[in-house]
Design a protein around this nucleic acid. Structure first.
Length: 417
RNA sequence: GUGGGUGUAGCUCAGUCGGUUAGAGCGCCAGAUUGUGGCUCUGGAGGCCGUCGGUUCGAUUCCGAUCAUCCACCCCA
C-alpha cells in the first residue's frame, strides 16, 4: 500500500511529462491569442459552494465529492470541477468591476469519487475557460471556437461538435410541464430513475440510456421547439455565427449536461465515443452565488482524455532532447576538468552533463545516447594537454574539432545549440 | 452504485493436467571492442507466481475470500 498510488490517481513519469508540457504550452499560447488570462484558485472550497453552484441534485454533488471536515470543523470539498471556484473568485475579487468582459482560463486538478476506467480518474486535470459579462451569441461562438482551435492545433481530426440549447429558467419551466404531461402517460414503462426524474428534472429522461425510456423519449416534445423567443433567437444566432466562421456542428437535443447551472447554449466535443470537452452558458450562476447579475459561459476540457486520444493517434511531437552536450571523461584529471567545463557551459545556458558514476567511456557513450545528447566530447589526458577535443554529433556520427577554452562558441558554430 | 475480465522479473507475456533448480522477448549491467553510442554475439543481476485462508504428503497451479487493476453501464472531463 505504501508504494501504491491511491485508486484512481496516476503519476506522470519523466518520460511522459513532455506530453503534458506540449498540451499545456499549446493551451497557453492559444489563450494568449484569444485574449484569455490565467486564474488560479484553491484546490478546496467550502462545501456549500458546490452544493449551491453545481446543484445538490446532481450526481457529482450527491455521490462523488471528496468532502471532509477540517480541524476547525468547517466542511470543505476538493473541487469536483472548475467553474464554481472560478465564479467565486470572480465575485470575491470584484473582477466584475474591471472592464468587461472578463475572459479567464485555468489548468487545474479536479477530484471525484468515482469508479475509475478508461479516461476516468478520481484525480483528473481540466483545462477550462470562462467568459463573464457578455450575453452575446458571439461570445458563445468564441468559446466554442477556442476549444475547436485548440483541438485542431493539436492536429486532432475526426471530432464531433454537438450543440443544444436548454433554454432559460422561464421557458424551461413551461417545457418541463409539457414533458411531465407527456411522460405521465408512460409511468408504468419508465425505469426507476426516470420516475424520480419525472418529478425533479424531466429533461433528464430524454437523456436516459434505458431502451424503453429512450424510445419513449424520442416522441417527447423538443425543447428547441418550445423555447421562448429570446432563447430561440440566441441559439439561432450562435448557429449562424458558427456557420459563418466555418465550424461544423450537429444539433443534439439529448445533450442536457449533468450540472444544474446551464442555461441556453450547451455543447460537447467528442473524439469517437469519448467526450473530451463539455460546456455551456450559465447566465444565472454568478447571481445565485451572490454576485451581481452577470452572464457566464465556459467549458471544461479533460487533459487526460486529450492526452489519451493524442497517444492513440500518435500525434505527439518527438520527445525533446534534454542534453546539448555530454562530456565523457577518463581518469581523475579528466573527471575534474570535465566537471569544470560542465559548470562553465551551464552558466552560459547550455544543457551540459558529465559522468557522475566513474564509468567506462563506452558506458558513458551509451548513457549519452540514452538521454539524447546532441554532442559528446571525450576528455582524456591528451585532450587536456592539447586543449583540443572532438565533438561528436550523435545523430550523424560526425566529429568536429573544438577548443576547450572556447567550447561555447565552437559548439554554437556547429549549430543546433 | 451495477456487471464482466485480469493479477508470474522493471515492461509485455508464456508455463506448471498439483511435484524437487519458474521461463522467453524487451529493458538494465558487464564483456567481445586496453579511450567512442546505435547493429551483432556472449555472460550477469533481477521473482515470497498480488495478499490471506482452505483442500492436499505437497499449492505459483485447485477452491474461497480480500485487495489491486482493466473494461463496460450510470454519470461525467
Amino acid at each position: 500500500m505504501l508504494t501504491k498510488a491511491p485508486r484512481g490517481t496516476k503519476d506522470v513519469t519523466p518520460d511522459n511529462v513532455y506530453k503534458w508540457q506540449y498540451v499545456e504550452d499549446t493551451i497557453r499560447a492559444l489563450c494568449k491569442c484569444f485574449g484569455y488570462k490565467e486564474i488560479r484558485v484553491p484546490v478546496f472550497e467550502h462545501t456549500e459552494l458546490y452544493e449551491r453552484g453545481v446543484g445538490d441534485t446532481t450526481d457529482v454533488v450527491q455521490k462523488e465529492m471528496y468532502t471532509f471536515n477540517d480541524k476547525g470543523g468547517r466542511s470543505v470539498t476538493l473541487r469536483p470541477e472548475g467553474t464554481a471556484g472560478v465564479v467565486r473568485a470572480f465575485i470575491e475579487n470584484n473582477l466584475y468591476a474591471e472592464s468587461a468582459p472578463s475572459k479567464l482560463y485555468y489548468i487545474l486538478s479536479c477530484y471525484r469519487y468515482e469508479k475509475p476506467q478508461a479516461g476516468r480518474l478520481r484525480e483528473f486535470n481540466q483545462f477550462g475557460v470562462e467568459a463573464f459579462g457578455a450575453y452575446s451569441p458571439e461570445t458563445d461562438a468564441e468559446i466554442i471556437s477556442l476549444a475547436m482551435t485548440l483541438l485542431s492545433r493539436l492536429k486532432l481530426a475526426d471530432l464531433g461538435l454537438y450543440i443544444n440549447s436548454v433554454g432559460c429558467p422561464e421557458c424551461r419551466q413551461a417545457y418541463n410541464q409539457k414533458l411531465r404531461a407527456y411522460f405521465s402517460d408512460y409511468v408504468d414503462q419508465l425505469c426507476e430513475t426516470c420516475l424520480t426524474r419525472l418529478e425533479k428534472n424531466p429533461m433528464r429522461i430524454i437523456d436516459c440510456k434505458n431502451k424503453t425510456c429512450k424510445k419513449i423519449g424520442e416522441g417527447a416534445p423538443s425543447l428547441l421547439g418550445e423555447q421562448c423567443g429570446k432563447c430561440g433567437e440566441h441559439f439561432d444566432e450562435v448557429k449562424h455565427i458558427l456557420q459563418e466562421i466555418g465550424i461544423p456542428y450537429d444539433i443534439d437535443p439529448t445533450i442536457v449536461r449533468g450540472l444544474d447551472y446551464y442555461t441556453t447554449t450547451v455543447f460537447e466535443i467528442k473524439s469517437g465515443n469519448m467526450v473530451v470537452c463539455g460546456g455551456g452558458r450559465y447566465n444565472n450562476l454568478v447571481e445565485e452565488l451572490g454576485g451581481p447579475p452577470t452572464a457566464g459561459i465556459g467549458f471544461g476540457l479533460g487533459m487526460e482524455r486529450i492526452i489519451m486520444v493524442l497517444e492513440e493517434k500518435n500525434l505527439f511531437p518527438e520527445k525533446p532532447s534534454g542534453c546539448d552536450l555530454y562530456i565523457a571523461s577518463i581518469g581523475d584529471n579528466a573527471h575534474k576538468a570535465a566537471q569544470k567545463l560542465v559548470h562553465g557551459l551551464r552558466q552560459s545556458g547550455i544543457a551540459a552533463e558529465g559522468d557522475l558514476m566513474r564509468r567506462s567511456v563506452k558506458a558513458q557513450m551509451k548513457y549519452a545516447d540514452k538521454i539524447g545528447a546532441k554532442y559528446v566530447i571525450v576528455l582524456g589526458d591528451d585532450e587536456i594537454s592539447s586543449g583540443e577535443a572532438k565533438a561528436k554529433h550523435m545523430q550523424t556520427g560526425e566529429q568536429a574539432p573544438v577548443k576547450l577554452n572556447t567550447l561555447t562558441d565552437d559548439l554554437s558554430k556547429l549549430g543546433n545549440l
